[in-house]
């Protein structure tokens, strides 16, 4: 399965045009906009409650972070289970794999309703942040 998704927002506020990406199988093999990710910055995005806020749902090997969620799978070894392209697709829009998924679409502006005004037309994470988070997750290899 190969599809080209051209994402561009159509909400009230002039939406940022999301960088296009190509899907192959269950992955987005190429980095978004050709950007390279930084694992340290990615870690900050994952922990930041105003950006990724991933720990409301997931556990990661961060002993100084109490109260990690149990909603999604633990991510301690996710880098050993999934390659970069697979990680990227699951962050960009996990509903491409599972329409019923609870995992939020982090790089999508279409098909969302009642988005709060300050987030309208914007993806939850931008292309650079997605690449940074991919770089962080890719390093998580020990269960």
């Amino acid at each position: 399965m190969t599809a080209v998704v051209l994402a561009c927002g159509t909400s009230a506020r002039p939406a940022v045009a999301l960088e296009p990406y190509a899907i192959a199988g269950d992955a987005i093999p190429a980095p978004l906009a050709g950007l390279s990710g930084d694992a340290q910055r990615g870690r900050a995005v994952v922990l930041d409650r105003t950006r990724g806020n991933c720990l409301i749902c997931h556990r990661v090997p961060e002993p100084d972070e109490p109260f990690q969620g149990t909603i999604g799978p633990p991510l301690a070894d996710v880098g050993a289970r999934l390659d970069d392209g697979q990680l990227r697709l699951r962050l960009v829009d996990a509903s491409l794999l599972n329409p019923e998924t609870v995992m939020p679409p982090y790089f999508r502006t279409e098909g969302l309703r009642d988005v709060a005004p300050q987030f309208r037309g914007l993806p939850a994470l931008n292309a650079q942040e997605i690449e940074d988070v991919v770089a962080y997750l890719a390093r998580l290899r020990t269960p």
Partner: peptide, 25 residues
């Protein structure tokens, strides 16, 4: 039942399907 917000979740997904799970604390 309808998904809403930038995180695209419905009340039902949390309060029927995920009851008992931890969301943060």
């Amino acid at each position: 039942e309808r998904r809403q917000g930038q995180l695209n979740l419905s009340c039902r997904q949390c309060h029927d399907d995920l009851v008992g799970e931890k969301l943060r604390g």
